[in-house]
């Protein structure tokens, strides 16, 4: 049911891990629905993403979209990273089954959340970036 690209990124996920003292960290999704993504970004003084890492709890598509999203934002500027949409992630993976499209949305959201955290920490306003909606810590606590 998954494309070869998805299976490749699931089997050999790129950029699994964490970044100590990351410039920005974003966590989205919630355990209730079965998907949580956390993306760590290391952003240089020039505003270029040096390094991206992720940790994901979820299905094959959730892992693959996290892996692809981190690949796509590496080396990009913050503004360019904002343009990495869920569509871009899906296309790069040669598509996802319809029931898994939400995984790509989650990946986009996780990137945005990490960028938001970076902006907050540095008192920056990133044009076009909205406050992320998913506060999973809250949701997990509510359980």
């Amino acid at each position: 049911m998954y494309s070869e690209k998805v299976m490749d990124h699931f089997n050999n996920p790129r950029n699994v891990g964490t970044i100590e003292n990351a410039s920005g960290v974003g966590t989205v999704g919630n355990a209730k629905c079965g998907d949580i993504m956390r993306i760590y970004l290391d952003i240089g003084d020039d505003g270029v993403i040096q390094e991206a890492k992720f940790k994901t709890f979820g299905c094959g598509a959730a892992v693959a979209t996290s892996s692809m999203a981190t690949e796509l934002v590496k080396g990009k500027t913050v503004q360019q990273a904002l343009e990495v949409t869920n569509k871009a992630v899906m296309e790069a993976l040669d598509g996802l089954p319809p029931v898994k499209v939400h995984c790509s949305l989650l990946a986009e959201e996780a990137i945005h959340a990490a960028l938001w955290d970076y902006a907050q920490k540095n008192n920056l306003t990133i044009e076009g970036l909205k406050k992320p909606v998913d506060d999973i810590e809250e949701k997990v606590k509510e359980e």
């Binding site: 996920p13 699994v16 964490t18 966590t27 355990a31 949580i36 993504m37 956390r38 940790k55 994901t56 709890f57 892992v63």
Partner: peptide, 8 residues
């Protein structure tokens, strides 16, 4: 688990 934010 090594990949899981919940585990972390």
């Amino acid at each position: 688990r090594a990949m899981s934010p919940l585990y972390e």
